[in-house]
Design a protein around this nucleic acid. Structure first.
Length: 366
DNA sequence: GTATGCTTTCGGC
DNA sequence: TTACGGCCGAAAGCATAC
C-alpha cells in the first residue's frame, strides 16, 4: 500500500495551432492563428488558438478575427479555420501513447490528461521525471507535438506545476516541496476559487496560497463552512485526495450556433434550435448510447450578454421529441422574459447523462 | 447551520 | 466605424432538507 502518489499532468502546447504547424511545416516560425469563422461576414468570428509567434503580437484566444488581422497586418501571418476532426484524431493518438505510460489514466479535455504512475516510478519523483522525459520524447517522435508536463503528489499540484513552464516544459514538485511551491501563488490558481470566493479571501487579507495555508483551518471553516473551508485549507497545504480515474467522455453535450442575423422571430430561432436539438440528441443517445435528465436552452443576445434556461425531468429519457419540445417551451418562455434584446446566437445542451446498463434501447423509445 | 441539488452564469481553452 | 465561437466544467446563487 503506497501512501505517496506520483501524479503527472500533461498539457499539449497551443494544441490546435501546433497541429496545423505539423500538417504544414512551412508555416512554422510565422504567427499561426486558428479561427472560428461564424459565417456572418468575411472576418466575423474569434481566435480559437494562436501559436507563440502570434501571441507576441497580442493575439490570444477569444479576440475577434478582425482584431487579430489588424495586429498582424505588418507581418506574414497565417489564418486558418478550425479543423476539429483533425485535432480529435491527433489527440486520440497522443492519448494512446500517454495511456501506455500509466497505471491510472484520466483524460481532461482534448489536450490534457492526468496519469498516476505509482508502480513504475517506485515512489521516486526522480524516476517519474525520467518517465515523463521519455513520454515527451515518444509523443514528439511519433506525433511531432510538444507538451508541458507537471509532476506532483496529486492532481492539484501536478496541474499547477505543468503551468509553470510553457511551452515544452517539465516541472517536478515533490511532496516535501509542494507547500513552498504553492505558497507564493495567487489563491485564484486553486480550483474552487472563483471571482466571488477570491473577493471574500481578499477581504480577510488572504492573497496568496501561503496566506491561505497559514490562516488556520478553524478560522477558515468559520468563514466558508466546514465543507468548502476544509477543502480550501487542504488545497492550500497541497493536499488533494481526488483520484485519477477514467471518466465518461463528458458530463454534458451542447451545440451552439450564430444566427444569420440578430432576431427575436420565434419561428426563425425555432428552426435553428430544432436542428441543434437533433444534433445533441444524436450525439448523446445514438452515438454514446446514453439517456439524460436535463435539457437547456442558451442564448447570446445582441449586446453579447448571455442567458440560459433549463429543465430537469423526474426520470431519464432518450426521446428526441422530449428535447425538441422542451427547448421550444424554454425558447418561448425565454423570449417573453427577455423583451429588450435581439438574439445573436442560440444553443442547446443536454446534461445529467445516465448510463443505460448495457441494454439496447427499443427504437420506439429512442 | 450545513449539506445537497438544481439553475444560471462565469471563465478557460 | 469597432470588431465577437463553440465548446466544456467550475463557480455562484438559490431553494429545500436535515
Amino acid at each position: 500500500m503506497y501512501s505517496v502518489r506520483v501524479v503527472i499532468h500533461i498539457d499539449f502546447d497551443y494544441f490546435f495551432a501546433q497541429v496545423e504547424e505539423r500538417e504544414n511545416p512551412r508555416i512554422k516560425g510565422k504567427p499561426v492563428v486558428v479561427c472560428v469563422y461564424s459565417g456572418r461576414s468575411e472576418d466575423s468570428g474569434v481566435v480559437s488558438t494562436a501559436n507563440y509567434e502570434a501571441r507576441e503580437h497580442g493575439v490570444n484566444s477569444g479576440i475577434p478575427i478582425a482584431f487579430a488581422k489588424r495586429k498582424l497586418k505588418s507581418v506574414h501571418a497565417v489564418f486558418l479555420p478550425v479543423n476539429h476532426t483533425l485535432y480529435d484524431i491527433v489527440s486520440e493518438r497522443i492519448m494512446g501513447i500517454i495511456r501506455k505510460y500509466s497505471d491510472k489514466f484520466e483524460q481532461a479535455g482534448v489536450d490534457e490528461a492526468y496519469i498516476e504512475v505509482i508502480g513504475r516510478s517506485g515512489e521516486s519523483f526522480e524516476k517519474a521525471r525520467e518517465l515523463a522525459e521519455k513520454l515527451k520524447e515518444e509523443i514528439f517522435t511519433k506525433e511531432r507535438i510538444t507538451c508541458s508536463i507537471g509532476i506532483g503528489p496529486n492532481k492539484l499540484v501536478a496541474k499547477i506545476a505543468a503551468g509553470r513552464q510553457k511551452p515544452n516544459g517539465l516541472t517536478t514538485v515533490t511532496p516535501e516541496a509542494a507547500e513552498k511551491f504553492l505558497s507564493p501563488l495567487p489563491v485564484r490558481e486553486l480550483i474552487g476559487v472563483g471571482r466571488k470566493t477570491e473577493r471574500v479571501l481578499h477581504s480577510i487579507g488572504i492573497k496568496t496560497i501561503g496566506d491561505l495555508a497559514s490562516y488556520g483551518k478553524d478560522k477558515l471553516t468559520g468563514v466558508f463552512g466546514s465543507s468548502l473551508g476544509l477543502y480550501l485549507h487542504n488545497s492550500a497545504i497541497g493536499v488533494d485526495k481526488s483520484p485519477v480515474e477514467e471518466r465518461r467522455k463528458s458530463e454534458s453535450v451542447s451545440r451552439i450556433s450564430t444566427l444569420k442575423e440578430d432576431t427575436r422571430d420565434i419561428d426563425e430561432i425555432g428552426k435553428v434550435v430544432e436542428s441543434l436539438a437533433e444534433e445533441v440528441h444524436r450525439n448523446v443517445v445514438e452515438e454514446q448510447g446514453l439517456m439524460f435528465k436535463s435539457v437547456s436552452l442558451m442564448a447570446v443576445m445582441d449586446d453579447l450578454s448571455i442567458a440560459s434556461r433549463s429543465q430537469t425531468f423526474r426520470n431519464p429519457t432518450g426521446s428526441v421529441e422530449a428535447v425538441k419540445k422542451t427547448v421550444k417551451v424554454l425558447l418561448r418562455q425565454f423570449l417573453d422574459q427577455e423583451p429588450d434584446h435581439l438574439v445573436r446566437r442560440v444553443g442547446v445542451k443536454i446534461s445529467n447523462l445516465i448510463e443505460v446498463s448495457g441494454q439496447r434501447m427499443l427504437p420506439e423509445f429512442a
